[in-house]
Design a protein around this nucleic acid. Structure first.
Length: 529
DNA sequence: GTGAAAATGAATTCCGTG
DNA sequence: CACGGAATTCATTTTCAC
């Protein structure tokens, strides 16, 4: 077919030669990757190409976001209310939020409002020399940038020639404002163990460089503009989008914003099986030839009704051999949407909780026992990390911290991050784990004891309780924080939410701003010490 | 009260075709 | 490239059985 021999050998070695389609797919992907001059993820090949570390994402700030176009005066009041609520949730005082909204107008974006408020805080702090308790005690580069924004755009002070303006103009020319975020295809980020990509280095924006290291996660298929906003808050680091189907037999499309090195990553061993049949050998016997699935869709928080599996069984029994095409199509549709597997003659079923645990890289029975219901197991697992994927990204820390790390784990859930680090053989010195759900905290605590951890595990209930004093005390008594991991709630972003998919300003997903707040606090405390 | 089962679309991306 | 159909998606609420 015209593939180079060397490439074919490499792929066969990785995947065996039994499945021709699979081989072809791999080869095609391979050849695309090798020939493509442009990588799916943007990197800066060398510093001389641009004299600034600002990425192409940088232009969302200036008021032209889509929401402002269709807003009418009647609507703007409630929109403002929503923004006010969001700001208050983010920890700003109602009074200063109101002033910001009034000053910048109802059309202003949330980011502009935040910029305004924090800049105003800095100005106040400078004017008063002695900062009061409510004002930020730390001023970093990000704040200075916001200060400039405040002074120039709001106070109307005269503008010296600054780099930002020039960049802004250049980007205006390219008209990047409405550009939709490009998800890489294949979704392998900076590479996965089975498909290496030729990106070995990336240049981070200055403000993003650690310590501390941070690792933020959320669903890749969020509403438009969400990832741009999150990236902007997290120091303009470009997200790494990875589908866990390259690590296990189930898809899981996620974005990760982190400042970890990306060279010399290594995976957890053994590599998990990446097909349904290898993961569940017993299904081979019952799997119809016309069900062409080799991998599962995303593992979610609830399972399908018994009624559907029963209907499928009855439909199948109506026919001796293969059912007609339209019946096949209907059954396949159900199987795909509910992740059903063949467990008997004409019989499909959803996955058991322990099967989900295994697919996600957790020890079997990780979520079992301790008074946790089956429903809750599905819910917690559906909201969790895929451990192999996360571990691959975190593996670079092993060399950096051979003696172990101090971890601040926000929205810990059932402890995907902790399990990943443990499986990598990175000792956990002190782990501060913040998790709202009690059953999840119990799961992590139980795992901690089962695995005979030597360090300290500190539980916290609410990210709102994590403030300056708390962090300073923590860092003083335990010797700093090395890594801050968090996947903030996705439920207002996730596609399967039918009632409240209202984006980053949604009730739960707005907790992203607490991740940013806490990360920024830690950074400031560290640079000021 | 608890836990399981059942019912409830839309936003967005992907992909083949003209 | 534009277009339209197919595919995918870390969920929430109500109902039911005990």
């Amino acid at each position: 077919m015209g593939f180079p021999l060397e490439m074919v050998c490499e792929v066969i070695q990785e995947h065996g030669e039994e499945n021709e389609d699979k081989l072809l797919e791999e080869l095609l992907t391979y050849s695309v990757l090798k020939s493509a001059p442009k990588s799916p993820v943007k990197v800066e090949p060398n510093p001389c190409s641009s004299d600034c570390a600002v990425s192409s994402w940088d232009d969302l700030s200036d008021s032209d976001d889509t929401s402002s176009d269709y807003e009418e005066t009647t609507k703007s009041v409630s929109v403002s209310d929503g923004k006010l609520l969001s700001l208050v949730k983010m920890g700003y005082k109602e009074e200063e939020s109101l002033i910001a909204i009034e000053r910048l107008g109802p059309k202003s974006s949330l980011e502009e409002l935040v910029d305004f408020i924090s800049a105003a805080q800095v100005v106040k702090a400078e004017d008063v020399l002695l900062p009061s308790e409510d004002q930020p005690r730390y001023v970093d580069n990000a704040k200075l940038k916001k200060l400039r924004y405040y002074e120039y755009e709001v106070l109307g002070r005269k503008k010296p020639r600054v780099c930002e303006k020039k960049i802004l103009n250049n980007e205006d020319d390219e008209n990047d404002y409405d550009e939709v975020l490009h998800l890489p295809n294949p979704m392998i980020g900076f590479g996965v163990p089975t498909k290496s990509i030729f990106i070995t280095h990336r240049k981070l924006p200055k403000e993003a460089i650690g310590p501390p290291y941070f690792y933020y996660e959320n669903v890749a298929l969020a509403p438009k503009g969400v990832w741009q906003t999150m990236s902007r808050f997290l120091y303009d680091v470009e997200p790494e989008f990875v589908d866990s189907k390259y690590f296990c037999a189930a898809a899981r499309k996620r974005g990760y914003i982190h400042n970890l090195p990306i060279e010399n990553r290594f995976p957890l061993l053994p590599l998990p099986p990446r097909t349904i049949k290898e993961s569940f050998p017993l299904t081979r016997k019952w799997w119809p030839s016309w069900d062409s699935r080799t991998q599962l869709n995303c593992l979610r928080t609830s399972i399908c009704s018994v009624k559907i599996t029963d209907t499928i069984r009855k439909n199948m029994e109506d026919y001796d051999g293969e059912p007609p095409q339209h019946v096949q199509k209907e059954i396949l549709y159900q199987c795909r949407t509910f992740n059903l597997v063949w467990v008997g003659r004409n019989k499909v079923a959803p996955l058991e909780p322990d099967e989900v645990e295994t697919l996600l890289g957790f020890p079997r029975n990780h979520t079992r026992g301790g008074g946790i219901s089956r429903t809750d197991r599905y819910k917690s697992l559906g909201n969790s990390f895929q451990v192999d994927t996360v571990a691959y990204h975190l593996s670079v820390l092993k060399k950096i911290y051979p003696k172990g790390i101090n971890l601040l784990s926000l929205f810990s859930g059932i402890g995907g991050a902790e399990v990943a680090l443990h499986r990598l053989g990175i000792p956990l010195k002190t782990v501060v784990s913040v998790e709202k759900s009690e059953v999840n905290r119990n799961v992590v605590r139980s795992w901690w004891e089962q695995t005979n951890q030597k360090g300290n595990l500190i539980d916290m209930n609410d990210v709102k309780d994590v403030g300056v004093e708390c962090l300073e005390q923590m860092m003083n008594s335990y010797g700093g924080i090395d890594l801050i991991i968090g996947g903030s709630p996705c439920n207002n972003l996730a596609g399967s939410n039918r009632v409240s998919r209202n984006g980053l300003e949604g009730k739960e997903s707005s907790l992203f701003f607490d991740y940013f707040r806490i990360l920024d606090l830690v950074k400031n405390i560290m640079t000021n010490n």
